[in-house]
Every structure is written in structure tokens, then in C-alpha cells.
């Protein structure tokens, strides 16, 4: 009962703030609403018994990624002149496409059946969530883990190479 109550609170706030993200003009306000939405997602991770994911979500998404967004908005210093968005020729087909996708996904979410077999990590095993996840990450999933670390390194080098100004002789 409590769980449902909290789920509905988090879900409502998440959806409302997500709608605000794409509907407000000012990018900084968008970023603030996105922060709210991401915090709700972190709370939903707690409801899904994975506090480690929630902490990682807050730490990486809210703590680092959104700071980067705000930093970029401030560095670019977009004045009000850049906020104006006229409705575009593509807008109508885009909205129709989004609507179709929405309906399709909704149908699948409501009518889908879960056929996969249940795994071994039931509630009792997930009490030590962090340890379980860490063990899995460094044994069974070591290959994707390495791939992701290489991607991170590439992103680091790439971002610096893109933004650094060449020294003119």
C-alpha cells in the first residue's frame, strides 16, 4: 500500500516535470525540470530495491551530467533571441509519429506477457544489492564493463579534442 502510494507520487511528479522539460522555453528551466525528473527516477529505483542504482543515478546523472548541461548553457550564453522556436514544417508529422509510437508502446506494455523464466536473485538475495551487483559486474559482465570503460576513455579524449582551440602560430 505504502509502496503504491509512493510510486504514484514519484510517477506523477516525473511525468509532469518531463512534460515541462519539453515545453518550457528557457533551457535553464528545462534543465531544472529535468533534474527533478531524474531525482524521481532515482526514487523509483529505490522502490525497485536497487539503492545502488539510485545512488549512481543521483551521483552521475544529477551530480555530473546535469551540471555539464547547465555549464554548457551558461558558457554558450544563449540570450532570449535564441529561445524563440517557430512551429516547423516537420512538427505535424513529428507529433503524429510520436503519437503512433506512444499508442504502440502503450498497447505492448498493457498486453505484453512475461514469459522469461525467473532468475535466482529474489528479494532475499537482493538485500546485499551493491555487493551482488559488483560481483556480477566484475565476473559475468566483465566484457561489457571493459567496453564501457573504453567508451568513457574515448569520450574523454574526444571531448577535449573537440573543444580545445588550436594554437595559432
Amino acid at each position: 500500500m505504502f509502496e503504491q502510494f509512493f510510486f504514484y507520487i514519484f510517477a506523477t511528479v516525473a511525468i509532469v516535470s518531463a512534460i515541462c522539460v519539453i515545453s518550457v522555453r528557457n533551457p535553464v528551466h528545462s534543465a531544472v525540470f529535468l533534474i527533478v525528473c531524474l531525482l524521481q527516477v532515482a526514487a523509483i529505483f529505490v522502490l525497485l530495491r536497487s539503492p545502488f542504482l539510485a545512488a549512481a543515478q543521483v551521483f552521475i546523472y544529477v551530480g555530473a551530467v546535469m551540471v555539464l548541461f547547465l555549464f554548457a548553457v551558461m558558457v554558450l550564453d544563449m540570450g532570449k533571441a535564441h529561445w524563440k522556436e517557430h512551429l516547423h514544417g516537420q512538427s505535424a508529422p513529428a507529433a503524429v509519429l510520436a503519437g503512433i509510437l506512444f499508442i504502440l508502446l502503450g498497447y505492448m506494455a498493457l498486453k505484453g506477457r512475461m514469459t522469461a523464466p525467473l532468475g535466482t536473485y529474489n528479494e532475499a538475495a537482493l538485500v546485499k544489492n551493491t555487493e551482488v551487483v559488483g560481483r556480477a559486474l566484475f565476473t559475468k559482465y566483465i566484457f561489457p564493463f571493459e567496453v564501457v570503460s573504453v567508451i568513457l576513455l574515448l569520450a574523454l579524449v574526444g571531448a577535449i579534442a573537440l573543444v580545445m582551440r588550436e594554437k595559432r602560430p
Partner: peptide
């Protein structure tokens, strides 16, 4: 008595920058 106490502190402590 949080299992992820250290991570939680890092994560929440980073939020005050906003």
C-alpha cells in the same frame, strides 16, 4: 543504516552545487 551510505553522501553532497 544505509547499505550505500558512502555513495549516498557523495551523491547528495554533490547536489548542493545546483
Amino acid at each position: 543504516d544505509m547499505n550505500v551510505g558512502a555513495l549516498y553522501i557523495l551523491a547528495i553532497g554533490g547536489l548542493s552545487v545546483y
